[in-house]
């Protein structure tokens, strides 16, 4: 994937998403996000934030419209092409999607294993991430035994472990105290500064209040720009 600052990483053109029987999650959303940009998407619960992120990694297909990642129409991607795209997109899901019968280290390693990283590289990366997220002592704990806040951080660590070009984070601070929120946001900002494009869906205004990144709002299935961002 391209990390050129002026290239477009995410492009949605008139994208709508309809769920059976009569839920209109998104209506004619059109937006472009440049490579290396950090964007906050806010909105009330059920506004369509999670749907928006799911469309970007082809967890869902749009009912209408076009979704392009790094210039590629993802509707056309299948098999290996889709797998490679997903290896370059790190997603921290709202419901975490952790393997509760595996250790923290194994959960984080999953995303690197599918990219055939070397075992010693994986071990090093897992160790670093656990240190950054203050989870070193949980290395061999089963994720099912962790608190919600700890699980959230493991999910985030897994999302960023493969150093993806595009990071999608769904409600990253929902279960965290302020100190841990600070730690998590520092890590995300570091990844952003290293060149990653970051999209954060949140209704926690404290994490975007003091930033100058682009701020979008989803309201009634439509996208509104509240603040124009300044590219770093």
């Amino acid at each position: 994937m391209s990390n050129q600052p002026n290239s477009t990483m995410v492009e949605l053109i008139k994208v709508s998403k309809h769920y059976h029987p009569n839920i209109q999650a998104l209506t004619d959303v059109s937006i472009s996000i440049r490579s290396g940009e950090m964007v906050f998407i806010t909105g009330r619960s059920g506004a369509g934030k999670t749907t928006f992120l799911k469309l970007l990694c082809k967890m869902e297909l749009p009912t209408r419209g076009m979704v392009e990642i790094d210039g590629i129409d993802i509707r056309r991607l299948r098999g290996k092409g889709l797998a490679i795209l997903r290896q370059n997109i790190g997603v921290a899901y709202q419901d975490f999607k952790l393997l509760t019968d595996r250790t923290v280290a194994e959960n984080i390693a999953v995303s690197m294993e599918v990219s055939y990283r070397k075992p010693n590289q994986i071990r090093k990366r897992v160790k670093t991430l656990l240190e950054e997220l203050d989870l070193t002592d949980k290395h061999n704990s089963m994720t099912g035994d962790l608190s919600r806040g700890e699980q959230q951080r493991v999910a985030l660590a897994r999302a960023v472990a493969n150093s993806p070009s595009l990071i999608l984070v769904d409600e990253p601070t929902g279960n965290l105290d302020s100190a841990t929120t600070e730690r998590v946001m520092t890590m995300i900002k570091n990844l952003h500064q290293a060149g990653a494009t970051v999209l954060i869906a949140t209704h926690d205004h404290t994490i975007y209040r003091n930033t100058d990144d682009r701020l979008l709002e989803l309201r009634g299935g439509q996208m509104y720009q509240l603040r124009d961002g300044v590219m770093q």
Binding site: G79, A83, N162
Partner: peptide, 16 residues
């Protein structure tokens, strides 16, 4: 099933 779904989401190929 959950693990296989996750593997797909993190970019595992069909062969994997």
């Amino acid at each position: 099933r959950e693990e296989l779904e996750l593997l797909r989401l993190v970019g595992a190929t069909n062969n994997y």
